[in-house]
Design a protein around this nucleic acid. Structure first.
Lengths: 338, 338
DNA sequence: CTGAAAGCGCTTACAG
DNA sequence: CTGAAAGCGCTTACAG
């Protein structure tokens, strides 16, 4: 393996000089030396050893992406996460950094990975609010969160207007004459995201003097397995004489819910209208195509990385938080109340 | 930051001894020393510096996952890739290693990442056959490929029986009386996978004395955009008087194709039968639910990582290759020929 | 069972 | 514009 030392010897200069050209400090090197060194580097196929560099500089050129991974659940099987992660990797690469990925069980083992590699910064996905504080106390590298609601002051977060999303869904359904609307989601309390959507949804109903019935709220177990959702779809189908529409907080869940309804002989949207959330590709792959609240995942990813690098570039950079807009995308899963 | 040296001083022993207990060489340390050192490590929250270790040992405890990323395409937007990657990360973590992810443009920039970090091993996804050779020449760390068909001898690959997949699809369609069957896929030539499926498909037709018509083969541009697929679906719909079924080499493509057909007023499976490939969750989220050739992605991921670690554990380990089985999953997208 | 010391491949004041 | 040398935090023969 050829090292910096080899290059220096072959070029007849000191290691300092070689190091300077590698790091682009051309002001400290004569044009001729620089050129000669560049050539030799190319010729020998020299690649600097990042471990050595990281050790000397005390930083690694690595960004960590941390995914909340419940037990043996594959976090990337969720398209929402997969798209975010994929896009972030691309962006990180564009910045000339490397990406390390972790599925996190608890805050402890995360710090471990972060510190052991001198990771420069990290972005966290799907962290629960109570875990965030702990993360702050154990590690002081720049962090940005995606979709977290936390009371911590200095938190950098990129999220969407979940409250508005709930409002839009309610308003749209109301405009089609629906009053008896079910709300279907993962456990409301566990994440701020779902809670906000729920609150926005209810507030819009109230504004129109429609009261939301507690009994129309359906929270899935944290364990979101298709079978449970399909079963719920069937039981909603039984109530189709009362409930005429449902706001479902994710397209994924909506799709299975609809399958459950169909299998129970209920038609969407003729018998029950459904509106989803996310605007995944799935919406256009299913029948009926799904009306949904759209969020821009790619932008969410891009912005998160952008903010992280702002903070890396100057450690005095303030904590930025961003709330991206959402909008309603009309397709075929909502119809007039029968 | 507390270092190994700090621990050694506090424990009143040499760095050698501390290093030994950290690395589990307990045979070289007295029980008492070991215990005392462990305690101090815990107390101080000491975390070894991986860069330093990597530099000294010349290996990093990092596995790289390399994804083929066409230009600015998000490789993880494809569920097939996302599931594989997610599962591999989990497995790699279980082995106590860290995961680094790269979207690859060309073989050169990959070697760069691999070598600069002293990566221990790498798994490659979706590599084209011609790129593999180059990868072999530029880097000699253990590699395993997923779904590659290459003529290289010593290649470790985990794949599925694509040929059989094609056969199963053909046989099933034939059993429903279909003879005029379209074959829809990404460009056949570019990847061995699609080619094999096509060959298996044709061979089964031949066996039943049905000849496959060249004009029934539809290759999408390498640029697989939904709109193109939907357009193809519409044009297939026009031919529904001749073509009665289609074998589509991915569920993703099948779903859009069906949307195109539906929008053209053609029913699936009544007018045209469709069979997909992969058995993604999507199959159960769409209507009609998709009959497909099933492959076990999680196992593919697990096995790939397993093989990689075999080779890490003993460098004399032979190149293992694995061909996982496929099977047909019957759902509702295939019907008797009208 | 234990430790002194060289070495891994870089970077970075500092002096010139 | 250039270089000698210390230092980053570990591991590993080697000697005892």
């Amino acid at each position: 393996m050829t090292t910096l030392k080899d290059i220096a010897q072959e070029a007849g200069v000191s290691m300092t000089t070689v190091s300077n050209v590698i790091n682009g400090n051309l002001s400290r090197v004569s044009k001729e030396s620089a050129q000669r060194i560049e050539e030799i580097i190319k010729l020998r196929g020299y690649i600097p050893n990042s471990s050595a560099r990281s050790l000397a500089k005390n930083r690694a050129n690595i960004i960590a992406i941390i995914l909340r991974g419940d037990k043996d659940e594959n976090a990337l099987a969720n398209p929402h996460n997969a798209i975010l992660v994929g896009k972030m990797i691309q962006e990180i690469q564009l910045h000339g950094y490397h990406t390390m990925i972790n599925m996190m069980k608890g805050p402890e083992d995360i710090t471990q990975s972060l510190r052991t590699w001198n990771v420069d910064g990290a972005v966290f996905l799907g962290m629960f609010d109570d875990e965030i504080e702990e993360l702050y106390s154990v590690s002081d590298i720049p962090k940005v969160f995606i979709d977290s609601y936390s009371t911590i002051r200095q938190l950098s977060n990129v999220g969407i207007d979940d409250f508005k999303g709930g409002q839009l869904a309610a308003r749209y359904l109301l405009s089609y004459g629906h009053q008896n609307i079910a709300f279907v989601s993962p456990p409301v309390l566990r994440t701020g995201v779902v809670h906000q959507r729920f609150t926005g949804f209810c507030s819009e109903l109230e504004k129109h003097n429609v009261s939301f019935q507690k009994s129309y709220q359906f929270s899935l177990e944290s364990d979101v397995k298709p079978n449970k959702i399909i079963a719920l779809g069937r039981s909603l189908a039984d109530k189709a004489d009362k409930i005429t529409a449902a706001f479902v907080t994710s397209d994924q869940i909506a799709s299975y819910l609809i399958q459950g309804m169909i299998s129970a002989g209920i038609r969407v949207p003729e018998d029950i209208s459904i509106i989803g959330f996310d605007n995944l590709a799935l919406c256009q792959q299913m029948t009926p195509q799904l009306t949904t609240i759209s969020q821009n995942l790619e932008e969410k990813a891009t912005r998160a990385v952008e903010i992280l690098f702002h903070r890396l570039d100057s450690d005095s950079a303030p904590a930025e938080s961003l709330v991206l807009d959402v909008s309603l995308v009309e397709r075929n899963s909502v119809a007039d109340k029968y």
